[in-house]
Amino acid sequence: MITHLVLLRGINVSGHNMIKMDALKKALENIGFQNVRTYIQTGNVFIDTEEKNGGSVGFQIKQEIFKIFGHEVPVIVIGKSDLEACFNNNQFLKDKECDTKKLYVAFISKELADGAMNDLKMSQVKPDEAQIDSSRIFIKYAVGAGKTKFDQKYIEKKLSVTATIRNWNTVTKLLEMYDAS
């Protein structure tokens, strides 16, 4: 069995795309996923399956969510090694004074090209900062996530990708849960 972390974008946020976690868990179990576990209400789901391909897992889940709940929800599936790399490669953590409450990670649907940082046009969102690492963007917000133009929609538009953003506390908890499974 392989454990995958499934990140659903835009569910249960501001009353949109409402899905109860118990109903989601049952729906995923009904299509053959095992040991389905969720973390908070915003679309963090661990599943066990024989399927190795994360893209295939994501496609199945996206289809089932649409079929059962009627929501078109972007899905990104990552493995434990991806999440561990997230911790090892976040250069913002080298600053001992860094406020982790202002750190976020945008998980991207594909590996980013070398020129992706230029495509982000960070001068338009200063003083927010970003660093790209493969299929992740590490974000350090100057004020906070609620007061920035540098959000998931901005990233998706500039890079032509699907993205979902998690705060650093959530990323930390998800790795703890991966380690426990």
Results as ranks from 00 to 15, higher is better:
residue 1 M to S: 14
residue 1 M to P: 11
residue 3 T to A: 07
residue 3 T to V: 10
residue 4 H to S: 04
residue 6 V to W: 08
residue 9 R to C: 01
residue 10 G to I: 10
residue 10 G to D: 01
residue 10 G to N: 07
residue 11 I to D: 06
residue 11 I to Y: 08
residue 15 G to A: 07
residue 17 N to S: 08
residue 18 M to A: 03
residue 23 A to C: 12
residue 23 A to P: 03
residue 25 K to A: 10
residue 26 K to N: 13
residue 27 A to S: 15
residue 27 A to V: 11
residue 28 L to V: 11
residue 31 I to C: 00
residue 32 G to T: 10
residue 34 Q to N: 14
residue 34 Q to W: 07
residue 34 Q to L: 12
residue 35 N to F: 00
residue 36 V to H: 03
residue 36 V to N: 08
residue 38 T to L: 08
residue 38 T to S: 15
residue 38 T to N: 15
residue 41 Q to C: 05
residue 44 N to F: 07
residue 44 N to H: 07
residue 46 F to W: 09
residue 46 F to M: 14
residue 46 F to S: 13
residue 47 I to G: 09
residue 48 D to F: 01
residue 50 E to M: 12
residue 54 G to Y: 06
residue 55 G to H: 15
residue 56 S to R: 13
residue 56 S to Y: 01
residue 56 S to C: 00
residue 57 V to D: 12
residue 57 V to P: 10
residue 57 V to L: 10
residue 58 G to V: 09
residue 60 Q to R: 14
residue 61 I to Q: 06
residue 64 E to I: 09
residue 66 F to E: 14
residue 68 I to D: 07
residue 70 G to P: 07
residue 71 H to F: 15
residue 72 E to N: 15
residue 72 E to D: 15
residue 73 V to E: 02
residue 73 V to S: 05
residue 77 V to L: 07
residue 83 L to Y: 10
residue 86 C to N: 13
residue 87 F to P: 04
residue 90 N to Y: 05
residue 91 Q to K: 14
residue 91 Q to C: 09
residue 92 F to L: 13
residue 94 K to E: 12
residue 94 K to M: 11
residue 94 K to H: 03
residue 95 D to A: 14
residue 96 K to M: 11
residue 96 K to C: 00
residue 97 E to I: 09
residue 98 C to D: 03
residue 98 C to E: 15
residue 100 T to I: 15
residue 103 L to Q: 08
residue 105 V to M: 11
residue 107 F to L: 04
residue 108 I to A: 01
residue 110 K to W: 01
residue 110 K to A: 05
residue 110 K to F: 02
residue 111 E to S: 10
residue 113 A to K: 15
residue 113 A to D: 13
residue 115 G to K: 13
residue 115 G to L: 14
residue 116 A to G: 09
residue 119 D to H: 12
residue 119 D to S: 13
residue 123 S to E: 15
residue 124 Q to M: 12
residue 124 Q to T: 08
residue 126 K to G: 00
residue 126 K to D: 02
residue 128 D to P: 04
residue 130 A to G: 14
residue 130 A to D: 04
residue 131 Q to G: 05
residue 131 Q to T: 00
residue 135 S to Y: 10
residue 136 R to S: 03
residue 137 I to P: 03
residue 137 I to H: 02
residue 139 I to Y: 02
residue 139 I to F: 11
residue 139 I to P: 06
residue 140 K to Q: 15
residue 142 A to K: 10
residue 145 A to C: 04
residue 145 A to Y: 03
residue 145 A to Q: 02
residue 150 F to S: 05
residue 150 F to R: 05
residue 150 F to W: 00
residue 151 D to W: 02
residue 151 D to S: 09
residue 152 Q to L: 01
residue 154 Y to E: 06
residue 156 E to H: 12
residue 156 E to W: 09
residue 158 K to L: 13
residue 159 L to S: 03
residue 159 L to D: 00
residue 159 L to N: 03
residue 159 L to P: 03
residue 160 S to W: 01
residue 160 S to D: 15
residue 160 S to N: 13
residue 161 V to T: 13
residue 164 T to Y: 04
residue 165 I to P: 04
residue 166 R to H: 07
residue 166 R to V: 10
residue 170 T to Q: 01
residue 170 T to W: 07
residue 171 V to K: 06
residue 174 L to F: 03
residue 175 L to I: 06
residue 176 E to C: 00
residue 177 M to C: 03
residue 179 D to I: 00
residue 179 D to T: 02
